[in-house]
C-alpha cells in the first residue's frame, strides 16, 4: 500500500471526523438557515413536478387572470395562491421556476469559477516563477474590472448581435459562462496566498525532510489545509452570482421573461409597484432574500466548522 492510497482511504473518514452535523446542531442560526437552504434546494430540484402551472407554457396563461392579488387580499382567486403577474401567470409557479433558474445558474457558474480559479491558483503557488507572475498578472488585470460591468458589456453586445430571440435561447449558458469566467481571480488569489502561507509552515519542511516529492506534499499536505477558505468563498459566490444574475435580468439581459429567474421576476414586477400591485415584485424578492441570507449564514458557519481544530471527538 503506498502513501497516496493511504491518504485517499482517510479522506472520507476525516470528513466525517470534522463533525459537521454536531456543529450544525450546536449553532441555531446555521441550523435554521441550512434547513431553509435545503428546502429551497429541494424545491428547485422538484419544481417541474410540484409546480401548479408551467410559467414557460403560454397555453396555460390567460391575460384575464392578470394582476390577481395573493390569498389574504380582497379579490383573490383560489387557483393562484400568491396571485398572478401582469401576464396572468401564477406567482407560486413563477417563483419556483425562478428559484430553479437562479440556483441552476449559481451552481454551474460557481463550479466553473471554482475549477478555473483553483487550478490556476494552485499552478501559481506550486510552480512559482513566470507561471505565477503570468497568472497573477492576469488575475490582477481582471480584478481591475467590475465583474458585473464586464458581464453587462459582453451580454449587451451579444444580445445586440444575436437579436433578442436567439439570445434568450442561449442566455442561461451565456450567463453561466460570463459569470463563471468573471470571478476566478478571487479563488486563485486566495489559494495562492494560503499556499504560500502553508508552504512556510514547519510541517511542510518536515515533509520535505522526510523526502516526499513536491507533488505529494502539494496534494496531500498543502491542498487540504488551503481548501476550506475556498469552500467558503464558493458558497458566498453562489449568492453573489445569483445576485448578479438578478441584476442582469433586471436590466433585461439575463434570463428571458418567458423563463424568468427570481431577479427577472422582480424586474418585471417593478413597473407594477407604483400602481399598488406590490406582490409581483415583492414576493420573488422575499424568496431571493431568503435564499441569499441562508447561503450567507451557512457560509459563515462553514468558515468555523472547517477549522481543523474541530476534527475528532471532543475530549
Amino acid at each position: 500500500m503506498n502513501a497516496a492510497k493511504y491518504h485517499g482511504h482517510h479522506v472520507w473518514r476525516r470528513f466525517r471526523r470534522q463533525q459537521l452535523w454536531r456543529q450544525l446542531k450546536a449553532n441555531r442560526t446555521a441550523f435554521v438557515s441550512a434547513i431553509v437552504l435545503l428546502t429551497l434546494g429541494v424545491l428547485a430540484l422538484i419544481t417541474p413536478w410540484i409546480s401548479p402551472f408551467d410559467p414557460t407554457n403560454m397555453q396555460q396563461q390567460n391575460i384575464m387572470d392578470a394582476e390577481l392579488p395573493p390569498f389574504w387580499q380582497q379579490g383573490n382567486d383560489h387557483r393562484f395562491l400568491l396571485g398572478t403577474d401582469g401576464l396572468g401567470r401564477d406567482l407560486v409557479s413563477s417563483i419556483l421556476y425562478g428559484l430553479k433558474n437562479s440556483l441552476w445558474i449559481g451552481f454551474w457558474a460557481v463550479l466553473l469559477q471554482f475549477t478555473l480559479g483553483t487550478s490556476l491558483g494552485l499552478c501559481a503557488g506550486y510552480f512559482g516563477g513566470w507561471a505565477e507572475r503570468l497568472i497573477m498578472s492576469l488575475a490582477d488585470f481582471q480584478l481591475t474590472f467590475s465583474s458585473l460591468m464586464l458581464a453587462i458589456l459582453v451580454l449587451a453586445i451579444t444580445r445586440a448581435t444575436m437579436g433578442a430571440h436567439d439570445y434568450h435561447i442561449w442566455s442561461p449558458w451565456l450567463l453561466v459562462l460570463v459569470l463563471g469566467l468573471a470571478d476566478w481571480p478571487q479563488y486563485a488569489r486566495t489559494l495562492r496566498a494560503s499556499v504560500l502561507a502553508e508552504k512556510h509552515k514547519d510541517y511542510i519542511a518536515a515533509a520535505q525532510v522526510l523526502g516526499y516529492k513536491s507533488r505529494h506534499i502539494m496534494v496531500f499536505h498543502v491542498l487540504p489545509n488551503t481548501l476550506s477558505p475556498l469552500l467558503v468563498i464558493a458558497t458566498l459566490q453562489i449568492a453573489h452570482v445569483i445576485l448578479a444574475e438578478a441584476a442582469l435580468s433586471f436590466l433585461d439581459i439575463g434570463m428571458p421573461y418567458a423563463n424568468p429567474s427570481l431577479g427577472g421576476l422582480m424586474g418585471a414586477g417593478f413597473e407594477y409597484m407604483l400602481s399598488g400591485i406590490w406582490w409581483i415584485a415583492l414576493l420573488p424578492g422575499l424568496a431571493l432574500l431568503a435564499l441569499l441570507l441562508s447561503i450567507n449564514l451557512v457560509a459563515d458557519w462553514l468558515r468555523d466548522a472547517l477549522d481543523p481544530k474541530n476534527l475528532g471527538q471532543r475530549p
Binding site: 509552515k201 514547519d202 487540504p224 481543523p308 476534527l311
Partner: peptide, 11 residues
Amino acid sequence: FQDPYTALNPR
C-alpha cells in the same frame, strides 16, 4: 522542529 504544533499537519 521548534514549535511542535506547526510541525504537524493539523489534518
